[in-house]
């Protein structure tokens, strides 16, 4: 199936010489939620900005539903909605007028019924006559989303959508993103919050220093890169790891009551039964046992730390 967004060998060098994107290639499938993770300055916003037409690429190409975003900019931009990272809104306009403005800007006929539905969905209907400057940060974020959706886009870019919003609003946003996906909208979001990607994304892309390190199905990524750890709590504290267990590369906690063993669950290293038998054979009495799996956050930190 043809991807809805296709990025090929995209590079961007700013006037000050900063190489923000380095030959990034990426296909985004229709109807998916893709989370782009990366530290500050990694190139996430530049990538989005080039796709949306706000920043010119130095080389490479972008197509949206088969249309080149430079040659057929009207077609591509009409399909895209963008929610920027900053709360960039005029001060003296009303919620209703600014959303109406956005719809017109994207060449759509006025449709008050659709805009009313949209504002109701975003809990903004009661504030439709309010001046933008009187709204809270969370409300302004919703207005930006309403503006981005005002022309019924097929692809929605959310640049750090939940930066600085409270937990409740964040969960509301996630619910909204899921609803949009159900209605067929493809969603690309950049985030610092691994929890966010873990909660709502289908695929995760990791960008660091202008390079797209990987794009993987979220579950497969966790499956592939996620290591597990088993921790055994002992009845009595140890001064050191017993010699009989020296081959197992075990970690002993500072208080000597816990032994930890890290392993990859998908390889032959996962000799849990053997380990437990060895611990028993060493004369240690186990009080408790727990296993933990590395989160997307740990995977992300590991990836961006690795030399590319």
């Amino acid at each position: 199936m043809q991807p809805i967004v296709s990025v090929r060998d995209l590079s961007k060098t700013y006037g000050n010489g900063h190489h923000a994107l380095k030959e990034v290639s990426l296909d985004i499938a229709r109807g998916e939620i893709l989370a782009l993770l990366g530290p500050n300055g990694a190139g996430k916003t530049t990538l989005i900005s080039v796709i949306c037409g706000i920043v010119n690429a130095s080389s490479g190409s972008v197509s949206v539903a088969g249309h080149d975003n430079v040659r057929d900019y009207r077609a591509t931009r009409g399909m895209i909605g963008l929610v920027p990272q900053e709360l960039t809104l005029g001060a003296f306009d009303t919620v209703w007028n600014t959303v109406k403005f956005s719809r017109g800007l994207f060449g759509k006929q006025p449709d008050p019924a659709y805009l009313e539905r949209l504002l109701r969905d975003l809990s903004l209907w009661d504030r439709k006559g309010s001046m933008l400057m009187t709204l809270s940060g969370g409300m302004k974020r919703r207005v930006l989303i309403a503006k981005a959706l005002s022309h019924e886009p097929n692809v929605l870019f959310l640049d750090e959508p939940t930066a600085g919003v409270d937990v409740e609003l964040r969960r509301d946003m996630w619910a909204l993103v899921r609803r949009l996906r159900e209605s067929g909208v493809t969603i690309i979001l950049t985030t610092h919050y691994i929890e966010e990607a873990e909660a709502i994304a289908d695929r995760v892309g990791v960008i660091s220093d202008g390079r797209l390190l990987l794009v993987e199905n979220k579950l497969e990524l966790m499956h592939k890169l996620g290591s597990k750890q088993i921790t055994v709590e002992l009845e009595t504290a140890l001064a050191g790891v017993p010699g009989a267990l020296a081959d197992w590369s075990l970690q002993l906690s500072e208080d000597g009551t816990r032994l930890s063993y890290s392993y990859d669950p998908h390889t032959a290293d996962a000799r849990i039964q053997e380990l437990l038998c060895a611990i028993s054979a060493a004369g240690l009495v186990m009080k408790d046992l727990k296993t933990t799996q590395s989160s997307l956050e740990e995977i992300f930190v590991r990836l961006v730390k690795e030399p590319s």
């Binding site: 706000i54 009207r74 591509t76 931009r77 009409g78 963008l82 960039t88 994207f106 060449g107």
Partner: peptide, 17 residues
């Protein structure tokens, strides 16, 4: 003013010549 406030992003990302 839109350049100053940042709202110019909307004009630049719209299908408008």
């Amino acid at each position: 003013f839109p350049r100053f406030t940042g709202t110019i992003y909307e004009i630049l990302s719209a299908p408008i010549s």
